[in-house]
């Protein structure tokens, strides 16, 4: 079985942990995305009229988001401690992760929204997209503690 894990800031240890539990026969892939639109917004740089710095700033920003994603990936590979393929992709996060799942049997992602308020927002925008569009089974793991049953709100009075 070919299993991919999406390595994103903050939530990746949960994904790596889930991948460590996969049987040794599984082929593991770690995917990280360098997404310029998630890095430093270039707009405010362009808004500084007259400074003429746009091109150099944009290049620096791209470089920055690439090296940040690479470092994250290296950290995850080291933490996994098992042979695996490391994929660094460049582009829009949600689209790249979905595309990486094309030849994959199982994609492991972490819940990445606001987990203090369980509900629609406990899934981030990208995770939502990946779950909807990934052409394979998607496992959503909890970073940190799983919520107890007491996290379920009281039923509405008419039920």
């Amino acid at each position: 079985m070919k299993v991919a894990g999406w390595i994103a800031a903050g939530t990746w240890p949960a994904v790596v942990e889930a991948m460590q539990r996969r049987p040794a026969s599984d082929e593991l892939v770690l995917v990280a995305v360098a997404d310029e639109s998630e890095g430093v917004p270039t707009g405010p740089l362009a808004g500084l009229m007259g400074r003429g710095r746009r091109a150099e700033a944009t290049a620096a920003v791209d470089q920055l988001s690439r090296s940040a994603a690479q470092e994250l990936l290296d950290q995850a590979v080291a933490a996994l401690g098992r042979p695996c393929e490391a994929q660094l992709r460049t582009g829009f996060t949600e689209r790249e992760v979905t595309a990486a799942a094309a030849a994959i049997d199982l994609l492991i992602v972490a819940r990445d929204g606001d987990r203090t308020r369980l509900g629609p927002r406990s899934l981030g925008r990208h995770t939502r997209f990946v779950i909807d569009h990934a052409p394979c089974t998607v496992a959503v793991v909890w970073p940190g503690e799983t919520p107890g049953l007491d996290s379920i709100p009281a039923p509405p009075p008419d039920r």
Partner: peptide, 24 residues
């Protein structure tokens, strides 16, 4: 904008936090 923003981005990602709130 020019000098501090890249440092904030690098700091947040080195911390393993998501850089977006800090950079914005």
């Amino acid at each position: 904008v020019v000098l501090l923003t890249p440092v904030v981005f690098a700091t947040a990602s080195r911390l393993g936090a998501r850089p977006k709130p800090h950079v914005y």
